[in-house]
Amino acid sequence: MKVSIIGTTGYGGGELYRILHHHPVFNIQSVHTTRDEIPLYEEFPHLNGITDLKLEHIDAEEIAKHSDIVFLAAPSGVSSKLVPAFSETGIQIIDLSGDLRLTNGQEYKKWYKHEPVESNLLEQAVYGLSEWNKEKIMDAKLIANPGCYPTATLLGLAPVVKEGLIDPDIIIIDAKSGASGAGRAISKKLLFSEINENFRIYKVNEHQHIPEIQQQLNLWNRGVSPITFNTHLLPITRGIMATIYVKLTDNLHSERLLELYNEQYLHSPFVRVRSSGNFPSVKEVAGSNYCDIGLHVDERTGRLTIVSVIDNLMKGAAGQAVQNANLMNGLDETAGLEFIPMYP
């Protein structure tokens, strides 16, 4: 099957190229940008000698003539302008931006500060949280790929939220990400001298991923109240750690909850639940599509601490996008994604 990538000059698009270059079924037909038409290796020198593909401008009809799937790795506010044209061609679309994730267009406008996509396209889009939405993804033509923070958070929370084991009024998420999560745009806060040996909180109670997480939690449990969610910038290149605090509604021990998580994720090849007393770190999933989860019940307080880690560019973006493409086309969901994490 032939695929095209739009937004190939960003980190997410570059990671898509890395994955798809080795995919056993998908072949990269073309790469596209709104910027200069130059060889891809001039934008990403690490691809010199690997590909001669040239970045091309975007023409939905032409792309659909030659490809079966298009990955939109463009920024939010840009994808929303591309989706309508591609949707008319019948090509499979996987959007990595936030433009299709919120079902309420006005909520999107409030949090993202862009005009929303037409409501009929929002209704067609399937939220691509691979482990929890497989059946819908398999029948979809249009996928809203989840955000990186929501992926780590939702995979960590899903079992206890769906089973009603926590107080829905108290969910606190303390999340941290490496610098690649901010993309390749130039920013003073991302200068080496600003980020090195530093640790910064940002978008306090205002992160655009809040309504995305809230939306999915409410689909699982209507009683979930507004969450507390805050993000921090780590002085590392890639990786996310979401440390989640919830209040249990019953006297449950860590071992029982570990059994529940292992049962829930038994058939999820990319979710690894750690043993009792074992907690993951971001380096242990770097460069892979894994989400590693550790948890512990504090019997003094009745609170459960969940630690969920992913690579923000892989499971949090490009890796999950390819996982969804596999599901959409009846392939093994692990196809092209069986990367062992890079360590150290």
Rank of each mutant, 00 (worst) to 15 (best):
M1Q: 13
I6S: 04
G7S: 09
G12Q: 06
G12V: 10
Y17I: 13
Y17F: 15
V25I: 13
N27T: 14
Q29P: 00
Q29M: 11
V31F: 07
D36R: 12
E43M: 04
P45M: 10
L47H: 04
L47I: 09
N48I: 10
G49E: 06
K54H: 10
K54S: 09
L55C: 13
E56T: 09
E56I: 02
E56F: 01
E56A: 11
E56W: 03
E56C: 08
I58T: 02
E62Q: 14
S67A: 14
S67M: 08
I69R: 00
F71Y: 05
S80A: 12
K81F: 11
L82T: 09
L82N: 04
V83F: 01
V83L: 02
P84C: 05
F86Y: 06
F86D: 05
E88Y: 07
T89L: 02
T89Q: 08
G90F: 07
I93P: 01
S97G: 03
G98E: 04
L102D: 03
W111Y: 13
K113H: 14
S119V: 13
S119D: 15
L121Q: 04
Q124W: 00
Q124G: 01
V126C: 07
G128L: 00
L129C: 03
E131M: 09
N133S: 10
E135G: 05
E135Q: 14
M138S: 12
K141H: 14
L142A: 00
C148H: 11
Y149F: 12
P159F: 10
K162N: 08
G164K: 14
G164L: 13
I170K: 14
I171G: 01
I172E: 04
A175D: 02
K176P: 00
G178S: 05
A182P: 02
I186A: 06
K188Q: 09
K188Y: 07
F192S: 07
E194S: 14
I195D: 07
N196V: 11
N198Y: 10
F199A: 08
R200F: 07
I210P: 02
E212L: 08
Q215F: 06
L217H: 02
R222G: 12
P226D: 13
I227D: 04
I227E: 01
P235V: 06
I236A: 11
R238D: 14
G239M: 09
A242M: 01
T243L: 02
L248N: 04
T249G: 11
L252G: 01
S254E: 11
R256C: 02
Q264D: 07
V271F: 06
V273I: 15
G277A: 10
N278C: 07
P280N: 08
A286G: 02
Y290C: 01
C291D: 06
G294R: 00
L295N: 00
G316S: 04
A321W: 00
N324C: 13
A325Q: 08
L327K: 03
L327M: 15
L327S: 03
T334L: 04
E338D: 14
E338W: 10
Y343D: 14
